[in-house]
Nucleic acid binder design. Structure first.
Lengths: 316, 316
DNA sequence: TACATTTGCATAACTAGTTATGTAATTGAT
DNA sequence: ATCAATTACATAACTAGTTATGCAAATGTA
């Protein structure tokens, strides 16, 4: 298909569907040419019955990776042709234990011959090709089980968008953003407190003039994230990371991580030994982010905030 | 899937279907996470419209390898969401020329970003795997175009069944088979002639005693094919291959070829220089077989048979 | 110029799967 | 012992494709 070369690998799904159609169409012809009245879609179920002798419908479904209704329908069709019988001995009347009939067993002998031929043909195809389709499918099942395509694409998205994020030092034009972004999330999850208003209304006095820093994340030149590095009173070398806020509409762009990195780098440049932070465990993505940045839980330090129920520290 | 390892490569179709389902399920999630109201199945059509600007439904169908009704339905769905408009200028009123709306073009910009992410994710998967699924699919499309799976399986069947075919010299117990197998095909396509009855009723006198041979093909100990090598009157070293007959129920087991080989080998052992045969061009599989055995057309020799319209010869 | 054939498309009916739902039988918890 | 929860299954309704069919428009041909 010329089309696939044009579109590129995003059409993987379409290409797979086409190949599936080609193969199953031929499968139907193959059964016919062997004089077998057998639908290709019956195969996984029939094969399972050949090996398991007696088994319930749900067991077959999990074995072959189909839905239970799918197996249910297939079994009904095979009963109609006389290959399978149902309601075999079971004390549990919900369960429908099915197995092959004498005719089914007879048929399985013919089927085995055909399977050998098909297997040989597929092996031939594999040996003629330099890329092993069968092995590739097996490998992809594995890789996608470990991390879905969805997750992989989202990682790419984050990566791309984080390239458009610029972390810049605070300027007076970002005064409003610094306050509104913080008020937004704090008042969503908690109540604004006295200490919040102090820092958000007067960042110059409470943060910058005391030797702290504020960083702003710009996405397409709009300030969508902020975070402060505040010098702690007790020690020359201790800082607090606080007032991190990212706009909900900019979530998933890695902004939190980039701000955190900027904070840590800045602290390091200033010769910091420790960075401390306070948070609340209901903010799960934030806590995960802090761990990712290298923070560890600590206990028992005093705090002015009611909402604080977890304290963390990063030793530099 | 444990199942596929048990079953082996005959389940290729099932495995492909499962992988297709996994990929398209994730595709739907991906569009959703980008905030796009877009169904994955629309993609090939939409992509074509992005590149072709204006195009008819049938043209799209051939381009992307779908059926025309499939494209017809997809276009209707996309018109309903406002991405596509139809009935664009055309003097031919049967044709429905479709193209993207302004909204469609707007959407295509977003889509391109997403496509980059997907392509990067798929490339990532390919580089993580040792078997390239994308390349394998492309290769298989090619290989199956050249020779379908159906044909490949049939070749394997022939190969297997020809192993169960034994070619043995004539014995008196095969007298009846020699006649009935020949009468069967001759009277199907032509009329029995005087010369037929002579040879079929008295093979000893007319064939064997004159230094000829008859071979019988046994499949599961049943005589299902016969063929004679007859010494020609004019020369010590010339033979005729005649009275080849294979039962219709044993077709496709390579029996004709095996009989032909036996005849040729026997002639060679007796020091033959030429083998001659007579046939009719309506018997296409037979003529093909003779070519396969190495026979070439010759012209103008006398023959007692009305049904003969082609004469062939193999020089040894 | 008339009429048969071909073309382009929509619609209907089918296929092989899915999810959602209802029901009877069994199991578990008080 | 009773009642809620779970389980096994069938059935219904949906999805994404297919082939079959019918109709109107265009083309080809005598």
């Amino acid at each position: 298909m010329e089309f696939f070369n044009k579109v590129g690998k995003v059409a993987l799904g379409s290409r797979l569907r086409l190949m599936t159609a080609i193969i199953t169409d031929d499968a139907a012809k193959i059964y016919e040419s062997y004089g077998m009245h057998f639908s290709p879609k019956w195969f996984p179920v029939f094969y399972t019955l050949m090996n398991e002798k007696e088994i319930t419908i749900t067991e077959i479904a999990t074995e072959i990776g189909h839905s239970q209704p799918s197996v249910s329908k297939i079994i009904q069709e095979m009963i109609a042709t006389g290959l399978v019988e149902e309601s075999l001995k079971s004390s549990d009347k919900r369960r429908n234990i099915v197995g092959l009939t004498a005719q089914g067993w007879e048929f399985s002998k013919e089927l085995k011959l055909q399977l050998n031929d098909v297997e040989a043909a597929v092996d031939g195809l594999i040996s003629e090709s330099s890329h092993n389709l069968w092995a590739a499918l097996e490998e992809w099942e594995h890789l996608l089980e470990q991390k879905t395509l969805f997750k992989r694409v989202n990682e790419q998205k984050k990566l791309r968008e984080s390239k458009d994020v610029k972390i810049v030092p605070f300027e007076s034009q970002y005064l409003e953003a610094f306050k509104t972004l913080n008020v937004e999330w704090i008042s969503t999850y908690f109540e604004m407190e006295e200490a919040d208003y102090k820092a958000l209304d007067n960042p110059k006095e409470y943060i910058l003039d005391k030797g702290g820093k504020i960083f702003v994340a710009l996405y397409q030149n709009e300030p969508l994230g902020v975070c402060a590095l505040i010098k702690m009173n007790d020690s020359e070398f201790d800082f607090e990371m606080a007032k991190m806020a990212v706009s909900p509409k900019a979530q998933g762009k890695n902004i939190g991580f980039l701000l955190g990195q900027a904070i840590v780098n800045s602290a390091r440049e200033q010769g910091a030994k420790k960075i401390y932070l306070e948070s609340n465990t209901i903010l799960k993505p934030a806590i995960n982010l802090y761990y990712k940045l290298g923070f560890q839980k600590v206990f028992g330090l005093p705090t002015p905030y009611k909402r604080c129920n977890i304290q963390m520290e990063l030793k530099i």
